[in-house]
């Protein structure tokens, strides 16, 4: 069991029922033809604006939302072909940590029950063994046994996030999907959570899908990064390459929106004013209505992802010259 994830041409489409008096059903393509590979023990960052499909992509990988097209290969097994009981052993190997841990916990359960529930469900562990194991899991995320008897509302934001992490680790997953794990935390708690994630990953060797809009957090944890816009993959590659020399104009715009204090305060202004992605272009490149490099060809045919040397992929007709 190595724990390698390959996603090939994945699309997720939501179909809305036809409105009264209308015949055709309306479709919303949340994720469109996205492919990536995540080697065992690696971390892939998925970045983009809110509504770009990054959460949907994470849920699709975990088989929490129906996949329209494409394959999700986990150690060579196509998860999209499995249903129900056949899928269950795989679910154990993949866990999700939500953005808001408070919303994701039953307020009437103590931390002990929250963390030991998956132990019962996945391994059928006895009650006494569960409590012992729960304390051990909490210790791994830097909490002591005193929190076992507390309720979620009695914990601070950082503690809650750790409990959520401990619960996800209970089934000894090979893949962790983290959906905006630090966006609700302040600077010092974020640093602690990111360091903890790094340590746990080095210790246990699971792979991570790190979903975030915070490029600086992604740059800290992710080996590779995938940039999504309107459900389409814009660019992916090693994080360092992407940040030092973005090839897609959208990645460059995203980077420009990150506040960079060291360079004074005039750096961030008009050039990063990206309009909301409400209406996408029907033909051509999905980003071209907002792109400042767009040429006539961009409005006509959609670019396909091409390799720019090594593992750096970009979906753009006129990629920016990367810096050496």
């Amino acid at each position: 069991m190595t724990g390698e994830l390959r996603v090939e041409h994945l699309s997720v489409e939501y179909v809305k029922r036809p409105r009264l008096g209308h015949k055709e059903e309306r479709r919303h393509i949340a994720v469109n033809d996205v492919s990536f590979a995540l080697p065992s023990g690696g971390t892939l960052g998925i970045v983009g604006e809110s509504g770009c499909g990054k959460t949907t992509l994470g849920h699709a990988v975990l088989q929490m939302t129906p996949v329209s097209r494409g394959r999700i290969l986990w150690d060579g097994t196509d998860l999209t072909e499995l249903r129900g009981a056949a899928l269950r052993p795989f679910r154990r190997q993949m866990q999700l940590v939500f953005q808001d841990p408070f919303e994701a916990m039953n307020p009437r359960m103590t931390v002990d029950r929250i963390v030991s529930e998956p132990l019962h469900l996945a391994f059928g562990m006895a009650r006494s063994a569960r409590r012992y194991k729960a304390a051990e899991l909490l210790q791994q995320v830097g909490l002591d046994e005193t929190v076992l008897s507390r309720y979620p509302r009695q914990l601070s934001g950082g503690q809650r996030q750790r409990v959520a992490l401990a619960r996800a680790l209970a089934t000894e997953p090979r893949l962790l999907v983290l959906d905006e794990p630090t966006s609700g935390l302040d600077a010092s708690l974020q640093a602690r959570t990111l360091n903890l994630l790094r340590d746990l990953q080095a210790d246990k060797g699971f792979s991570t899908l790190f979903i975030s809009h915070d490029l600086s957090a992604v740059s800290y944890v992710a080996h590779r990064t995938l940039v999504l816009f309107g459900g389409h993959m814009m660019e992916q590659g090693p994080t360092a390459t992407l940040i030092r020399g973005p090839a897609h104009p959208y990645t460059a715009a995203l980077l420009a929106a990150v506040p960079v204090p060291a360079q004074g305060r005039a750096t961030t202004s008009a050039q990063n004013a990206i309009p909301r992605a409400g209406q996408f272009a029907s033909t051509g490149c999905i980003y071209c209505p907002w792109c400042n490099q767009a040429q006539s060809r961009c409005h006509l045919d959609a670019p396909i992802a091409t390799a720019l040397g090594g593992e750096h992929l970009v979906a753009c007709h006129y990629p920016l010259p990367g810096k050496p």
């Binding site: 604006e49 995203l254 990063n272």
Partner: peptide, 10 residues
């Protein structure tokens, strides 16, 4: 998110 954040601060 970062992009909207930049717009609001602008």
């Amino acid at each position: 998110d970062v992009v909207v954040q930049a717009q609001i601060l602008d």
